[in-house]
Structure formats: C-alpha cells, structure tokens
C-alpha cells in the first residue's frame, strides 16, 4: 500500500533505468576510476589498521574480539579531544593551523597532527592491557562461546561509556585543521584534482604503520616470538617465552592499531556514535576474505573490500552496503580458509 506510489517514482531513477552497465561505463572513465580507486585504497588502509589487530588477536589468542570496533571508535573520540587540545586555540595548543601553505609550518603542523594521533593511540594501550589481563585471560581455557559473550559485553560497556563521556553529537576537529593539510599540494602535483591532501596524509601514515607492522613481525625478536607463539604455543612456552606477556602485548598492539586508525580517520571526518559497530562488521568481512588470522590476508582483504565498496557507489549505489557481505559469502563458499589461509608460517 505504501510502496506502490513510490515504485512509480523509482521508475524515474536514471540509474536504475540504465542499470549496472552504464554505471560500469561511468566507473571506467579514467579520472573517475583513478579517484575512486584512491578513495577505496584509503578506506582499505584504515580497514587494515582495524582488521590487523583483530586478525592477529584471533591468530594468537584465538579470541574473536567483538569489542575491537569500539577501540577504533574510542581512538577517534580520544583523538578529537587530544587533537582539539594540541591544535586548537587553548593554552596547551602546540600550534594553530597555518592559514596558507608554507613548507615549514605546514609540514610541522602535519607533524603535530600525527603526534596527536600517536598520543591517542597510546592512550588505548593501557585500555587494551586491562581488557586482556582482567577480562579475557580468565576465559582462554573455556568454551569459545564465552569469549563472544564477554567481548560483546565489553562492546556494550565501551560504547555506552563513549556516549557518557562525549555525548551523542559528532566530535570533530575544526575545519581549518583539514584545510591546512589540504593546502599542501600532493596529488595536484601529479595533475590529479579531486583528491584532497588529507587523503594522501592518511595513506602515507597508514602505509608507514603497515610496513612497520610487517617489519616488526618478521625482523624483530619480539615479533618472531609472537609468531612462534602463534604457531605452537607449547613449544614457545618450553623455550622460555611467557605466553601471558605475549598475549598482553598482542592485545595492546591491536588496541593501538585500532585506536590509531580511528585517530587518523578523525583527522578527515568526524567521530560518530555507532562508528565502531560498522567498523567491526566490515573488519569481519576483511579477515574472513583474507583468511582468519592472516596478516597478509588482512591487507588484501581490506584493499579488496575498500576499493570494491567505493567502485560500487558508482556502479550501483543501492548495493553499496550489501557488496562486502556478498564477497564474504562467495569467498567462504569457494575458498573457505580465505585467500591467504592462517597466519604464522607465512608472513
């Protein structure tokens, strides 16, 4: 009854008339394609920061942390406060956003923003430690279903606390902050307009963190211990590695990465109630596509989902939110162990 008259209007929709083919043609125009792909990669990088923690915690602790999305949200909210503190007009402000591009002050300002993101992510470390040592540690030996209840309970508590502290209005940095970053020319130098430099900033910083993460796991001693623990917990213990400390470290690392992802997203957009839940569900998709517990898989999964979802907004906007789950279902049916299997041996 309600729907019939709407259907009439819907018939007018140009996009639905022309369908997916025209959407594809639109996407394949070079400019659109490049810009949309860059958008997708940026989104993919952020997804990777969230999913990396989720997948490493899963791979090593064998815990699916449902509260992980809230750590990402918390990172964004904390960054709104820390960032407002450091670059605002208050007494503690290190510097105000420069009003026009100047190599020295602009890059110094970017440095302050990154510092704010780092501080925010570091604030999440003790929170992660408490979550692991107080709540999760006692239930490692118990039925898996309890970790789902436990981490969901933590999700509810953190989400409620965020609203308690910051309220329900979106939190964001002053627009002048973003303008100051965008004033630095980046993609414009390549002759590509329509990609603000804030996107470049997020991509570069996330890339550095991502590369650092791989370096940490493959080249440092602690990283190799963690991997060894993932492969064979008993063997690692026999060699004198403390699994307790390893687990705490891994969880804290996950919290740091998620928080850092949230803080970087805040620079570009705003912290919203509910952002943690959608991030959580999307990072499930990422780690399933990549392979549960696989770090390399998380990279690929995040980029696939990020880019695909952005392409979808051009090809067929109504499928934007269904697309990731369709991919997840297909991967689970065709290659149930994910694109890269499990983590540990192959990094």
């Amino acid at each position: 009854m309600v729907t019939s008259s709407i259907a009439l209007l819907e018939a007018n929709s140009v996009l639905l008339q022309s369908g997916i083919i025209e959407g594809l043609q639109n996407l394949l125009q070079p400019d659109t394609f490049i810009v949309q792909t860059i958008n997708g990669i940026r989104f993919g990088f952020i997804l990777f920061l969230i999913a990396a923690g989720l997948t490493v915690i899963l791979g090593i602790l064998d815990v699916l942390n449902l509260a992980h999305g809230e750590l990402y949200a918390l990172g964004a909210y904390v960054a709104a406060s820390v960032g407002g503190f450091l670059v605002g007009e208050g007494t503690a402000a290190i510097m105000a956003p420069p009003s026009s591009f100047d190599p020295v002050t602009s890059f110094a300002f970017v440095g302050v923003l990154i510092l704010a993101a780092l501080i925010s992510a570091l604030i999440l470390v003790p929170i992660g430690v408490v979550m692991e040592t107080v709540f999760i540690r006692p239930i490692y030996e118990r039925d898996q279903v309890y970790q789902l209840v436990l981490t969901f309970a933590l999700l509810l508590i953190i989400a409620n606390m965020i609203e308690f502290i910051w309220g329900s209005n979106p939190q964001k940095l002053d627009l002048s902050t973003k303008t100051a970053v965008n004033d630095i020319p980046t993609f414009e130098l390549l002759g590509l307009s329509g990609v603000p430099s804030i996107v470049t900033l997020i991509m570069v910083v996330s890339l550095v963190v991502g590369v650092g993460l791989f370096y940490f796991f493959s080249k440092t001693k602690t990283g190799r211990i963690i991997r060894a623990t993932a492969i064979d917990r008993e063997m690692a213990t026999a060699l004198g590695v403390s699994p307790d400390r390893t687990f705490t470290l891994v969880f804290a690392l996950g919290a740091f990465l998620a928080g850092f992802g949230g803080a970087m997203e805040l620079v570009r957009t705003a912290a919203n109630p509910g952002m943690g839940e959608s991030a959580l569900v999307l990072s499930f998709v990422v780690i399933v596509v990549g392979g549960l517990g696989s770090l390399r898989g998380a990279v690929v999964g995040a980029l696939v989902i990020g880019v695909l979802q952005n392409w979808m907004t051009v090809v067929e906007p109504s499928l934007e939110s269904a697309a990731p789950f369709a991919v997840m279902v297909i991967v689970l049916l065709v290659k149930p162990e994910g694109l890269f299997g499990t983590w540990g041996e192959r990094t």
Binding site: V14, L15, N26, N39, F43, P170, V314, S318, E320
Partner: peptide, 25 residues
C-alpha cells in the same frame, strides 16, 4: 533535468569521498 548521479551512503558513515568524487567528475 537529468539525474547523472545518485548515491545513498549509510547513516553516520562519515565517508562521502566516493560520492563527492563522482559529483566532481
């Protein structure tokens, strides 16, 4: 007038990059 682009981002998604890029092109 003809509709050349129509996007429906999720509520609270905070990400309009791709929609704005489409409009720009």
């Amino acid at each position: 007038a003809e509709t050349v682009y129509s996007g429906f981002p999720d509520l609270g998604s905070g990400d309009y990059a791709s929609h704005i890029s489409s409009i720009n092109s």
